[in-house]
Amino acid sequence: MEDAFLDVRVQRTMRKITHALVELLKEKSLAEISVKEIIIKARISRGTFYLHYKDKNDLIQKLKDNYLHHFFPKIHAAFDGQRVDFFLEALNFLKD
C-alpha cells in the first residue's frame, strides 16, 4: 500500500515539474531557464528535483523519451490496419 502511495506522490511531483517547465517555456527559451526557476515554479525542493533528474537536460531527455514511448504505439496502431483516427488520437495525446 505504501508503494502505491509513493507512486502517486512521485507522479504528482513529475507533473508539477513538467507543468512548471511548460509554463516557463511560454516566457523564455529552454537555454534561459534554470533548474532554480523550475523548482520555484513547481514549488518543490532542489533535492526533490535532483532525486528524479541529473540536470535540466536530463529532464528534457526523459520528457522526450516518455512522449515518444506513448506516441509511437498510436502511430503504429494508425498504420496497422486498425480503425484509429490517427490525428484525433495524436491531438488528444498532445493535449494530455
Rank of each mutant, 00 (worst) to 15 (best):
M1N: 04
M1L: 07
E2V: 01
E2L: 14
A4R: 13
F5S: 10
F5C: 09
V8P: 05
Q11E: 08
T13M: 03
K16D: 13
K16L: 07
K16A: 15
I17F: 07
T18V: 02
H19A: 08
V22S: 10
K26Q: 14
E27S: 09
S29K: 09
A31D: 13
E32P: 05
S34D: 11
S34I: 04
S34W: 14
V35E: 12
V35F: 10
I38S: 06
I38E: 02
I38Q: 01
I39M: 04
K41V: 00
I44C: 11
R46E: 13
G47A: 14
T48E: 14
L51M: 12
H52K: 08
H52N: 12
K56S: 10
K56E: 06
L59C: 10
Q61F: 02
K62C: 07
K64V: 11
K64P: 00
Y67R: 04
L68H: 12
L68E: 13
H69T: 02
F71G: 09
F72Q: 13
F72P: 03
F72G: 05
F72D: 09
K74Y: 07
I75C: 11
A77E: 15
Q82N: 13
R83F: 06
R83K: 14
V84H: 05
V84P: 05
D85V: 01
D85N: 15
F86A: 14
F86M: 11
F86W: 06
F87R: 10
L88F: 11
L88Y: 13
E89R: 02
E89C: 04
A90P: 03
N92C: 03
F93A: 06
F93P: 05
K95T: 01
